[in-house]
């Protein structure tokens, strides 16, 4: 499990999981889960197209992810982008279904693109994977404060030097890169679960942004490692384990939050004071 070509998957999988966890922190904070769902699905069309013409899937995935990002960023208005996102999703999916129907011999490849494969990372892909991962982390670090402020309350960010629309473009770009990295391993259908389950749990567990972001990356890493190992052992798709684990993290996070809230309410002096006063609004 740790030898030969599997080493590539462990390395590539670790990069993609950490990146997905970091990007996912903002996905959940900004309520952009639909975009995080649509971009991978659109990128799948690119992967299918690449398979059809015999190009590396990383190139096809990346191209279509960028296409989706550009369309969403360009046509969304006033921060509302759900309709545009849906239209981008359906048009790219349409193209993807065409590509698939043209390449019936690649059914096995299409299956692993949709549901993921533990053998997806080749040694020639390690360097581009690391480079894309580093770019994504640098992008998030640069935009950390404008993105965070804009996620907390968009009205507060409008007076800053980074216009919210530009911050949003940078954010979507990060989603596109994370998608490109994660899609071959996790599969197009379930890439976004890695960007949602771990950060959603993390924000229940950690009350400060930097901690929640780090925890999100850590949970995503654990998820990916367990999923790759389990998939290797069982031959079940990686996506199945990633999806299941992400949901488990989230339920655990909610349960912990509920438990700790109750524990605080029964002992904390401030909580008692608040209960007595009630909420002002």
């Amino acid at each position: 499990m740790f030898s030969g070509f599997m080493v590539n998957t462990w390395l590539g999988g670790s990069v993609m999981a950490a990146v997905a966890g970091l990007v996912g922190f903002f996905v959940v904070l900004r309520g952009s889960t639909f975009a995080a769902h649509a971009i991978p699905q659109g990128a799948f069309a690119g992967a299918a197209g690449a398979a059809l013409i015999g190009v590396n899937t990383l190139v096809g995935t990346g191209t279509f992810a960028l296409l989706g990002v550009a369309a969403i960023a360009l046509w969304s208005r006033h921060g509302r982008n759900d309709v545009v996102t849906a239209l981008v999703l359906v048009s790219l999916l349409g193209v993807g279904s065409l590509f698939l129907s043209l390449s019936t011999e690649y059914a096995q490849q299409a299956f692993s693109l949709l549901f993921g494969s533990p053998l997806a990372v080749s040694s020639s892909e390690l360097v581009p994977t690391a480079a894309l991962g580093a770019f994504c982390v640098a992008l998030l670090a640069a935009l950390y404060r404008p993105l965070l402020l804009g996620s907390v309350a968009p009205e507060l960010a409008i007076t800053g030097p980074v216009p919210p629309a530009r911050a949003e473009l940078g954010f979507l770009l990060a989603v596109g890169v994370a998608t490109t990295l994660a899609l071959p391993v996790v599969g197009a259908l379930l890439v976004f679960s890695l960007m949602i389950g771990p950060p959603a749990a993390a924000r229940q567990l950690a009350g400060r942004p930097s901690l929640a972001m780090g925890l999100s990356a850590a949970l995503a890493l654990v998820t990916a490692w367990v999923a790759i190992a389990a998939s290797y052992e069982t031959n079940w798709p990686v996506g199945f384990f990633v999806g299941t684990f992400s949901a488990v993290w989230y339920v655990a996070g909610r349960a912990w939050a509920a438990w700790s809230r109750r524990a605080r309410a029964s002992v904390g002096p401030r909580a008692r004071q608040k209960l007595a006063l009630g909420r002002a609004s």
């Binding site: 670090a141 950390y144 404060r145 404008p146 907390v152 507060l156 800053g160 030097p161």
Partner: peptide, 10 residues
């Protein structure tokens, strides 16, 4: 977050 404005970087 108000302190650093909305500057770039961590």
């Amino acid at each position: 977050l108000g302190l650093e404005g909305t500057r770039l970087g961590l």
